[in-house]
Amino acid sequence: MIQIEQLHKQFGKNVVLNGVDLNINNGGIFAVLGPNGSGKTTLIKSILGMVVPNKGTISIQGTNIKKNSEYRKHIDYLPQIANFPNNLKVKELIRMIKDLRGETTNEQELIARFKLEPFLDKKLGNLSGGTKQKVNIVLTFMFNSPLVILDEPTTGLDPIALIHLKALIQAEKEKGKTVLITSHIMSFVEEIADEIVFLLEGVIYFKGTLHELKTKTSQPDLEHAIASILTTNHA
């Protein structure tokens, strides 16, 4: 699914990715974790082609993504901050994204699940942050792509929506898809992730299951496991 070899990226003098190698071949839910500035977002954006790497190659489904835009048809991406053109209506935004990407599979069901019907005719500029995030989620999940990338998906969601979101993610996993998630909410990660990819100082420090991580650090839960990694490395 995803092959990353020796990925380097620096912004000015600031080295963010310093030779990342990552292979994800199977389906499942992968949480990309790491302290602030460890390069999570840069890694994700590199996969999406939004950041142009200095060195290294990224292949998605066997094709090199350099100078290519078509591969993104196979990726559903949920951006971190949902900000849409203020003068478009929700309905129009959905129609527009469909127009840009092609037909959807379960748009109506998603709208119903997040109770967005009353907002369809409202302008995006008039929506609350949580509602915008719901729209954002609908836009992401309404396509049926084998790779799903979620950047801080829980932002601004109420508990009910959060439950819906978790169910959605699980459902995607069951379809055999690969889901990449970044999150700061450790309980969320712990509950949902199959594997952890831990980034530290521009390289992959750890990749493995939740259980392996706990064993390695001999900590009872994810939060402490991560804290322990960070303290041993910075001690």
Binding site: S69, R72, K73, P79, P85
Partner: peptide, 16 residues
């Protein structure tokens, strides 16, 4: 103002 929206578009199968 449309920076975030642009980012959304960038993740779509569209040429820059």
């Amino acid at each position: 103002n449309s920076k975030e929206f642009t980012e959304l578009l960038l993740a779509q199968p569209l040429k820059r």
